[in-house]
Design a protein around this nucleic acid. Structure first.
Length: 419
RNA sequence: GUGGGUGUAGCUCAGUUGGCAGAGCGCCAGGUUGUGGUCCUGGAUGUCGAGGGUUCAAGUCCCUUCACUCACCCCA
């Protein structure tokens, strides 16, 4: 085999591929039911959109982007995340000049150039939601609730919700300075020391035990929130609690993208190998302005579709048994029968009965095997004897009962049987 | 970018101190020339990841390389 999927990518094959469609559907159904509209944006964008939107100091921008020049010399980048493109589209088409908030959801591929491991690939899929134009804690609470509903509808029990507030442009600078002062006093490696100056909050997220041990007394954002951020955060918490949404306050929760303000949250699960996040999001009140737009507060999340699938597998929610693909399967014997069966199968499909048939000139035994493996309830056996009688043998594969039905009536008969 | 593990049939994997390339599942055919699943019999499929080296002889030992995988940094 000379070709294989590019490094860090993989193929979805039946029957798992069918189930991933169902996962996407389940994660997005709550969004559609809450008045969010579907948006599709290009898979690639101007590199600067991510550089400015996501932030030059983030790992995503500094080392994980698939960036390439097009033939005219423009620098394009395969999208590493969905929020910046959605905000770009909103600003470009002036959607924010209409009724607010603008409520949108999306579903699609994302790309990050990283060393792959379990739950982390170079090409992955996210379902996302964004609500722009309203600074309303109820909106934060709403989208969080919609994520919780999506996971719950898949039967997932082990998804936990972590919640924090990162403050805003009033209170974050003071906190940032306090944190930097604390961190500079620690014994850290060079890369981490550099991070203190660029994005100190992310140091809190370091998983290494020797780093975590030193962070015990680190100043926490919650203790530095200004009055309005504090009130906002309490309101979000109150709304979630009132709605019966379980969450854990995690004062160390920091997210890797620069645009987050105030509410941040992550959905985590233990079944993803070394990864823990199945989804995450938060408020990004300054993003629009970073993209030369007007002040336009926003809140959103993205859920990892393939990570959600891993979580489901970890909980034993994915069974690998092949589902039945069609209801009826045609078994023709000989060329004349094959031509007639070809038409019959087509008629069945038009009548709303899903149908397949044996191809490749298989013998009866092989064709019946095909019928069995298709999961069809009924096999239609058509040979020369049947053609002469203008009839077809209808065999119920679950009971092995077989009856002869006139060709002229078989579509109606099957239509009745598969109801 | 850094570190560990693994590469043998379509899949999951055995393969002994270096000595004929294997099993299970799957696939195909036959048993049943017009009947699937269960059963029985038979069959096909290999660049042993690739390249080089040692040796009478390498899947096995050595070197290089590639891929996959897990983990770190970081993230969905």
């Amino acid at each position: 085999m000379s070709f294989q999927a590019p490094k860090g990518t993989f193929d979805w094959l039946p029957p798992r591929s069918e189930r991933i469609l169902a996962v996407r559907e389940a994660l997005t159904a709550p969004l559609r039911a809450a008045g969010y509209g579907y948006i599709e944006t290009p898979v690639f964008e101007d590199t600067q959109l991510f550089a400015r939107g996501v932030g030059e100091s983030t790992d995503i921008v500094s080392k994980e982007m698939y960036t390439f020049p097009d033939k005219a010399g423009r620098s394009l980048t395969l999208r590493p995340e969905g929020t910046a493109p959605v905000v770009r589209a909103v600003l470009q088409h002036n959607l924010h000049n209409g009724q607010l908030p603008v409520k949108l959801w999306y579903s699609g591929s994302q790309f990050r150039y990283e060393r792959s491991q379990k739950g982390r690939y170079r090409h992955f899929w996210q379902v996302g939601v964004e609500a722009l134009g309203s600074e309303d804690p109820a909106l934060d609470a709403e989208i969080i609730m919609l994520g919780v509903r999506g996971f719950a509808s898949l039967g997932l029990k082990g998804v936990r919700l972590l919640l924090n507030s990162l403050g805003d442009k009033t209170c974050r600078p003071a906190y940032r300075a306090a944190l930097q002062e604390f961190l500079r006093g620690l014994d850290l490696d060079e890369d981490t020391r550099a991070r203190i100056e660029i994005n100190p909050l992310r140091v809190l997220d370091d998983k290494r035990p020797e780093v975590q041990a030193q962070l015990t007394g680190a100043p926490l954002v919650v203790d530095h929130l200004c009055a309005s951020c504090k009130a906002y955060h309490e309101e979000v918490r109150g709304l979630l609690a009132a709605a019966g949404i379980a969450f854990e306050d995690d004062p160390r929760l920091v997210r890797g993208l620069d645009y987050y303000t105030r509410t941040t949250f992550e959905f985590v699960h233990d079944g993803l190998g070394s990864q823990s996040a199945v989804g995450g999001g938060g408020r990004y009140d300054g993003l629009s302005e970073m993209l030369d737009g007007p002040p336009l507060p926003g809140v959103g999340w993205a859920l990892g579709v393939d990570r959600t699938f891993l979580a489901m597998e970890a909980e034993g929610l994915v069974d690998d048994t092949a589902e039945s693909r069609v209801q009826v399967y045609g078994v023709p014997l000989g060329d004349d029968a094959r031509r007639r069966m070809f038409l019959l199968v087509s008629e069945l499909r038009e009548a709303g009965v899903s149908a397949d048939m044996a191809f490749g000139g298989k013998g009866l035994k092989g064709a019946m095997k095909g019928a069995d493996r298709s999961g069809a309830r009924f096999a239609l056996i058509l040979g020369e004897r049947d053609l002469a009688a203008e009839a077809v043998q209808v065999k119920d594969l679950t009971t092995a009962e077989q009856t002869e039905v006139p060709l002229a009536q078989v579509v109606d008969v099957l239509k009745g049987k598969v109801q």
